[in-house]
């Protein structure tokens, strides 16, 4: 005998929809609430002295992060974009491509602190760069490399095949086609992906913990690639977990500045990307 459902399927559905909506709200709302709380607290703690005065001044840390991010991009972007070009334009299915993809996935999955260990062993110790901007940026570059590759590859794949075909049919070589047709068309997409990846570098701490960051510098602004640096996330970490004497407002304000910086980059890139998708030229 077929027995009826204990609860009518439609009621089950209504119930589950409510549960699912609540769960989705739980994912988004508390974090938004916490960030909002941080914003309010941080905004209240902001003042010019915070940036310039005292041992916890934010400006040197921001400059350090800026240097780090720029140098990381300078190292990782050429390699990452070239690798993406290889995967999207040259590579065919085969063992090599599968290995490269596996390597990218693993590179993306390596814990950031392990990247830090690697940077310590290779750049700081073996290559004798010491604990410095260059070591930190090289370590960080390895961390963001897989992100840049995937973002760039996606941007390259968005370029329609017929543009390539059109160029090739005119007698252009493969490289000419890439340089004159594919890359220019993919460039905005690659740039937004690059910004998103690089914002990761602005917020990461673990990789520079033993490779670049140092708190009490005689000269807070690095003058060469081989100087130690301050960095915003590192400073926030040290301040909140090892300096109970620093007033809470200063900590909130530091977190605020970091969040605004990183999320600002992200929001900018996402808006730009949305704009690009809407204004698809092909």
């Amino acid at each position: 005998m077929t027995r009826p459902h204990l609860v009518h399927p439609r009621h089950v559905q209504n119930m589950m929809y409510i549960v699912l909506s609540l769960m989705a709200a739980v994912v988004v709302l508390p974090v938004l609430g916490l960030l909002a709380y941080m914003m309010i607290k941080g905004l209240a703690g902001l003042n010019p002295d915070l940036f310039l005065k005292g041992s916890q001044a934010l400006l040197p840390a921001m400059v350090g992060t800026l240097y780090l991010v720029l140098l990381t991009a300078a190292i990782a972007a050429p390699i990452g974009i070239a690798a993406a070009v290889y995967l999207s334009e040259y590579a065919h299915r085969g063992i090599l491509v599968r290995l490269i993809r596996l390597a990218i996935i693993n590179l993306a999955g390596v814990p950031s602190v392990v990247h830090g260990l690697f940077g310590l062993a290779l750049f700081v110790m073996m290559l004798k760069f010491g604990r410095c901007l260059l070591s930190g940026a090289a370590t960080m570059a390895l961390l963001v490399l897989p992100l840049i590759i995937s973002a760039s590859e996606e941007a390259l794949r968005q370029v329609p095949q017929r543009l390539r075909d059109g160029s090739l049919a005119l007698g252009a070589t493969r490289w000419q086609t890439i340089r004159r047709v594919v890359l220019p068309n993919a460039l905005p997409g690659i740039m937004t992906g690059l910004i998103l990846s690089i914002s990761r570098a602005a917020g990461e701490t673990a990789p520079i913990l033993f490779t670049a960051a140092f708190l009490s510098l005689t000269n807070p602004y690095p003058e060469s690639l081989f100087d130690e640096i301050l960095a915003l996330p590192y400073q926030l970490f040290v301040m909140t977990s090892e300096m109970p004497s620093v007033p809470a407002e200063t900590k909130w304000a530091t977190a605020f500045v970091l969040v605004v910086l990183v999320l600002g980059l992200n929001i900018g890139a996402i808006l730009w990307r949305t704009h690009l998708r809407r204004a698809k030229r092909w």
Partner: peptide, 25 residues
Amino acid sequence: LLKPLVELLAAVPSVVFGALGVLLL
């Protein structure tokens, strides 16, 4: 609205989550 929001969630640096934990939660 939700998709970029979730993406943004991924971009919050881990030290910030840490600071929220230490200072507030």
